[in-house]
Design a protein around this nucleic acid. Structure first.
Length: 477
RNA sequence: GGCGGGGUCGCCAAGUGGUAAGGCACGGCUCUGCAAAAGCUGCAUCGUCGGUUCGAUUCCGACCCUCGCCUCCA
C-alpha cells in the first residue's frame, strides 16, 4: 500500500512517488494568502488540508520541504496602502502576522519557508527576462510585460493542462474585455505591470522600467528558487487551478529550466471550496467567518480544525455554526477517552510499550484510510470506532495500565497526523472547588436537594460534576 | 453559453454491482440518590424516471434540483 492522491494534471487518483527518490526531501508548495485582510476559514480550509497532507507524508516517512508564499504586493494591497497611509511593509506585516497566528491557532505546522513576493523581485525579474529572451514574453505599449500564450504554444508547449479550455466557446465576460488593453491576445496575462500613478510608492526598477510583478509569476519564481525547477507537490484552492496554476505551469515550463522530460510539478492537488450555510462565502453576503470571529464566539482552534478536516478535501464542504457545535461535542468525547487512558496509563511502569503480541488496529486502519486519497472521513470513522472500543475496555476494567499506555501511544502517533492536540487544561477556580466540597459534604449527609442545588450553582459557573466510584470530578462545560 | 462538482438517516458525511461507515442530535436499557460520563441498543433502501444485470444506491441514458469555475477569489 502506498499513498495515492488525485492529480489534477491527469484528473485521476495516482500513487504518489517522489520525483527524485534520491533527494532528501519532497518539494511541497502551497499557494499562500494575499495579505490584505484577515483570512477567512475558507482560505484556511486549504491551508489546514495542506498541513494534514504534509503531516501524513511525514508520518509515512517522507521528509517534506514545505513552502508557502506570502503575496504581499497586489492591487488590493496597493489600494489599502494608499488609503491607510501605511508603508507597504507595515500594512502587509500586520496581516502576515495575523495569518501566521491563525495558522498556529489551527495547529498547522509552520511551513519551512514563507517567501514574500517582495523579497524575490530579482528572481522574478530574471524569470521574466528569460521568458522574454525565449520570445514568449513581450512588452506592451504601456511598459508592461505580458506572457504570450500563442508563442508558448508555438514552442510545442501545452497551455490548458489543468483545465479543459475551449477559447472559442468562452463567454466574454466583462472582466475579460475590461482587461484587454495593450495585450496582443485577450488570453495573455501580465508578468510585469508598469507603474501607474495609483501605485504610489509601490514599485521596483526593472529592465522594462518601473513597475511591479504580476501575480502568477511570483509563485513560479519563488517555488523554483526554493525547490528547484521541478518538484513534487503543488497545492492550492480549486479556484486557483485556472488561471493561476495554469499560468504558473506556462511560465515555469516556458522558461525551460527543467531537465528534459521533467515537469514543473509532478502532482497538482486542489482543495475544494467551503460554503457557508450553503452559499459561497462572500463579503457582500456577509456570510464569512475569520478564525478570530470564531474564537470570539468561544470556539477553539482545534474545534475549527476538526470541522475543517471532517470532509474529504475534494468535496465542497458546508460550514455552519451548528456543525462547529457538533464538532465540539465529538471532540469532547474523544478528549474524555484520551484523558481516561492517560490516567490509566499513569499506573504503568517503565517503558510502557505494552504487549507487542496484541498489535493495535488503530494505526493500520488510519493508514489504509489516509492512503486512499487522504480519505479523512474514513479516518475519523476509524478513530471513533477506536474510541468506542477503548471506552468499552476501560468500562469493563479489562485494560491494564500497560495496555492503556500502548493505546495512548498509538493515539499520540495518530494525532501527529490529525493535529488535534490535547484539550487545554483549565484549573477550576477556588469558588468552584469550594462548591464541589460543599456538594460532597451534602452528598455524604444524603442531603440530595442541597447537592443538586450546588450542582446547578456550579453549572452557572461553567462547570459540571461527574460522580464516579473514585469520587466527584469537575469538568469544564 | 462552455467546463466541472454534488444530490445517501433530522443535520454533517464515507462507501460499495449483492440489500449502506462514522460524527452530532434523538429514543430505550444498564450504571447512578438523581444526573452526567460510559456501555449496550434502536433509528435510512441512497433526487426522479427508464435501461443493462440473476441482482444497482453503486453502471448507462434522460430529467429535476443545487454548488462552483470561465483570466489576478483558498
Amino acid at each position: 500500500m502506498a499513498l495515492s492522491l488525485f492529480n489534477s494534471l491527469h484528473r485521476r487518483v495516482e500513487a504518489f512517488s517522489p520525483l527524485f527518490p534520491e533527494a532528501d526531501a519532497i518539494g511541497f508548495y502551497c499557494c499562500g494568502p494575499t495579505v490584505y485582510d484577515f483570512g477567512h476559514i475558507g482560505n484556511f480550509r486549504t491551508f489546514v488540508f495542506a498541513d494534514l497532507l504534509r503531516r501524513y507524508l511525514e508520518y509515512r516517512g517522507f521528509r517534506v520541504n514545505h513552502v508557502m508564499n506570502i503575496t504581499d504586493v497586489e492591487d488590493k494591497i496597493i489600494r489599502q496602502v494608499a488609503a491607510t497611509g501605511l508603508s507597504l511593509a507595515e500594512f502587509t506585516g500586520k496581516y502576515t502576522e495575523a495569518f501566521l497566528s491563525d495558522l498556529q491557532t489551527l495547529a498547522c505546522l509552520r511551513p519551512h519557508h514563507l517567501p514574500k513576493a517582495t523579497d524575490y523581485i530579482p528572481q522574478i525579474i530574471d524569470l521574466i527576462g528569460r521568458l522574454e529572451q525565449r520570445g514568449i514574453a513581450y512588452r506592451a505599449g504601456d511598459g508592461s510585460v505580458y506572457f504570450s500564450i500563442n508563442k508558448y504554444r508555438a514552442c510545442g508547449c501545452r497551455y490548458g493542462q489543468l483545465v479543459t479550455l475551449d477559447p472559442e466557446a468562452q463567454q466574454r465576460t466583462e472582466r475579460v474585455s475590461g482587461d484587454s488593453y495593450d495585450k496582443d491576445d485577450l488570453a495573455d496575462f501580465a508578468l510585469w505591470k508598469a507603474r501607474v500613478p495609483a501605485d504610489g510608492p509601490v514599485f521596483w526598477q526593472s529592465p522594462w522600467g518601473e513597475g511591479r510583478p504580476g501575480w502568477h509569476i511570483e509563485c513560479s519564481a519563488m517555488s523554483m528558487a526554493i525547490l528547484g525547477p521541478s518538484f513534487d507537490l503543488h497545492l492550492g484552492g480549486e479556484d486557483l487551478a485556472f488561471p493561476h496554476h495554469e499560468d504558473e505551469i506556462a511560465q515555469s515550463e516556458g522558461a525551460g529550466l527543467q531537465q528534459a522530460g521533467r515537469p514543473f510539478v509532478k502532482h497538482w492537488v486542489h482543495a475544494a471550496h467551503l460554503l457557508v450555510d450553503g452559499k459561497k462565502m462572500s463579503k457582500s453576503l456577509g456570510n464569512f467567518f475569520t478564525v478570530r470571529d470564531l474564537l470570539n464566539k468561544g470556539f477553539l482552534g482545534r474545534e475549527i480544525r476538526f470541522l475543517l478536516t471532517s470532509a474529504h478535501y475534494r468535496e465542497t464542504f458546508n460550514f455552519t455554526l451548528e456543525g462547529l457545535e457538533a464538532s465540539r461535542s465529538a471532540l469532547s468525547r474523544l478528549d474524555a477517552t484520551v484523558a481516561q487512558l492517560t490516567e490509566k496509563a499513569a499506573g504503568s511502569v517503565g517503558s510502557a510499550l505494552g504487549d507487542p503480541a496484541t498489535p493495535l488496529p488503530l494505526e493500520s486502519a488510519l493508514i489504509a484510510a489516509l492512503d486512499d486519497d487522504l480519505n479523512v472521513s474514513k479516518a475519523w470513522a476509524v478513530i471513533f470506532d477506536w474510541v468506542r472500543e477503548t471506552n468499552a475496555a476501560l468500562a469493563s476494567g479489562s485494560l491494564s495500565p500497560s495496555a492503556a499506555a500502548e493505546r495512548l501511544g498509538a493515539w499520540k502517533r495518530v494525532d501527529q497526523v490529525m493535529g488535534l492536540g490535547a484539550r487545554p487544561v483549565e484549573e477550576a477556580p477556588a469558588a468552584a472547588l469550594a462548591l464541589l466540597e460543599k456538594r460532597n459534604a451534602a452528598k455524604a449527609a444524603r442531603d440530595f436537594a442541597l447537592a443538586d442545588t450546588v450542582r446547578n450553582e456550579l453549572k452557572a459557573l461553567g462547570w459540571t460534576v461527574e460522580d464516579s466510584k473514585t469520587g466527584s470530578k469537575l469538568k469544564r462545560l
